[in-house]
Nucleic acid binder design. Structure first.
Ligand code: ZN
Ligand code: ZN
Ligand code: ZN
Ligand code: ZN
Lengths: 132, 132
DNA sequence: CTTATTAATGTTATATTATTACACAATGTT
DNA sequence: AACATTGTGTAATAATATAACATTAATAAG
């Protein structure tokens, strides 16, 4: 059983909002949307984001400077993440594929290096945008 | 044979500098170091970077907002990139592994989505930092 | 060669993303 | 209680990146 972190007030406010919007969202957009909850400054958002990333509740989409809720309780607390990103509509989905994560984990091992995590981002067109 | 792009003046200046430093470097650091060559504004650097990324001469390390020269003429013009990043000394190396790129390419195909590229970043400790 | 088109440049201003610094409060441990 | 750890509030600022506009250079047709 994974350790269940107790979130602080600001962390919970930020997580609630990210889970609600259910798509990648940027820090300053979060800020604007949680100001009614009493969060006033960027740093309050960034501190909450840091913690939420650390405990694996959310991930950062590095190529987009955006944050998204984890959809995959088995992604080993943010240490092994993979996403597909549509370059047309910017839709992002988290990839949950056991074979892929096993392959990448074993790749790390073979390389003889002490990797703790990885992040993989695929770019292209989602199904909807492929049709157009 | 791959198409050989002719670089513009600014593109060449920026590429020369990135190839010379031979490690990931940030846009504003590039700017400071090429001002003696006549490049005065951030935008001149960013425009050159955009083009160099597009033609695969350099890659962006997304998690670090830094740029590095491509060491791997076979990485298919920036469409399939993989890096290992040391979280201690920030050393970055480009991974060139045929099996890995084939695996990820086939993964894309199986997913039935039209992906054009991917970027993979492994994080951990390099050999030097593992010993310490 | 002339015209049209595209790509690159120069410059200023501004937008966006993220961190430093410092004072203080809440929480958990011994 | 004393201490350590974590979280908060606030202001200022740093770092990263783009918008807008005028101009020039390079390519490609006709
Ligand atoms: Zn996840
Ligand atoms: Zn799409
Ligand atoms: Zn490369
Ligand atoms: Zn290292």
């Amino acid at each position: 059983m994974l350790k269940q972190e107790t979130l602080s007030k600001n962390q919970q406010i930020v997580l609630d909002y990210i889970e609600k919007v259910n798509e990648p969202i940027k820090a300053y957009s979060i800020l604007h949307n949680v100001q009614k909850k009493g969060i006033k400054a960027p740093l309050q958002v960034y501190r909450a984001l840091d913690k939420l990333v650390e405990i694996g509740k959310i991930h950062k989409i590095e190529s987009r400077n955006a944050f998204v809720a984890c959809k995959n309780s088995s992604c080993q607390l943010s240490k092994a993440t993979a996403f597909s990103i549509c370059e047309s509509c910017e839709e992002v989905s988290e990839i949950s594929d056991n074979k892929l994560s096993k392959y990448l984990k074993s790749f790390q091992d073979k390389a003889g290096m002490k990797f703790k995590k990885y992040n993989l981002e695929f770019f292209g067109l989602c199904k909807k945008c492929s049709i157009k």
